[in-house]
């Protein structure tokens, strides 16, 4: 396992009560400061693995190490972005974004100051006092992202964050995420269904086999992003090769 892995998963297996074996013997490391995706067929245990890394559910076997410490539960160095947003419906955007800090006991003025910055950062300036039901799905997910950024965790765990928005919004989000990661040093572990999304965003793609999920292959697309535009990246040979390679593996699973 690489030396600079900030998250290490060692022999993790998960069997849900009711004897559903979701994961078996998953071992891999996530390099610091990179975006890694978990990709695999539906029901292969991607969410399960992400929640085990997040400390939200315990592994049945094996262990997870984050920054050299064994995971026993959630921690301040990890922040979660939920697939279903998980926003408080009775709280404004501002309070929702500040909620992680509120739980940590940060004084109101200070946490709202930080939250306002993050709201600007994710492009929601002007929506501070609106409520989640007044926002589109895409905007709600930005709130979820801002909340995760506000607690300033090194590791951001994202469970299919862009799955409930339309294709245009999705592409816009992807660019914004890459843009954000250029400015901030974050390690991102990102669950997705989409081959293109994985290839476009990732430094590393972890392909999981169908249930019970285990690591089937790790692909490093090695796309030189630099200052290139999204369209240039999507025409990059390495990008196209990665998409093809992933598809060659996944197509065997859908048969």
């Amino acid at each position: 396992m690489s030396a600079d892995a900030i998250v290490e998963v060692a022999g993790v297996g998960k069997t849900y009560e009711g004897r559903v074996q979701a994961l078996v013997d998953v071992s891999l490391g996530f390099p610091s400061g990179k975006l890694s995706t978990l990709l695999g067929p539906s029901g292969c245990g991607k969410t399960t693995l992400l929640k085990i890394i997040g400390g939200l559910i315990p592994a049945t076997t094996g262990e997870v190490w984050v920054k050299g410490r064994k995971v026993e539960g959630p921690g301040p160095e990890r922040a979660f972005v939920f697939q279903d947003f998980a926003l408080l419906p009775w709280a404004t955007v501002l309070r929702n974004v500040a909620f992680g800090l509120e739980l940590r006991g940060v004084p109101t003025a200070e946490r709202e100051e930080i939250a306002r910055q993050q709201i600007v950062e994710v492009g929601l300036a002007g929506f501070e006092s609106t409520y989640p039901h007044q926002l589109s799905g895409g905007m709600r997910q930005r709130v979820g992202l801002a909340r995760a950024l506000a607690v300033d965790a090194d590791i951001i765990l994202m469970d299919e964050p862009f799955s409930s928005v339309d294709e245009q919004t999705r592409r816009k989000f992807q660019e914004e995420l890459l843009d954000l990661l250029r400015r901030k040093q974050k390690t991102v572990i990102f669950v997705t269904h989409s081959i293109e999304e994985a290839a476009y965003l990732s430094d590393r793609i972890v392909l999981l086999s169908p249930r019970p999920g285990t690591v089937s292959k790790i692909i490093q697309p090695n796309i030189a992003r630099g200052q290139r535009s999204a369209d240039e990246i999507r025409r990059d040979k390495n990008y196209l090769d990665a998409v093809d390679e992933i598809w060659q593996i996944l197509r065997r699973y859908v048969a």
């Binding site: 997040g54 400390g55 939200l56 539960g73 959630p74 921690g75 301040p76 990890r78 922040a79 979660f80 939920f82 279903d84 998980a86 408080l88 009775w90 909620f99 992680g100 509120e102 739980l103 940590r104 909340r147 607690v151």
Partner: peptide, 26 residues
């Protein structure tokens, strides 16, 4: 109470009493 909100609270380091006061009761 929406279980996903409770999970969110735990993910952001909420204690059990914060979970009750800030999520479950509202």
């Amino acid at each position: 109470t929406n279980p996903s909100l409770i999970q969110m609270c735990r993910a952001f380091l909420g204690t059990r009493s914060q979970e009750v006061v800030k999520i479950i009761l509202p």
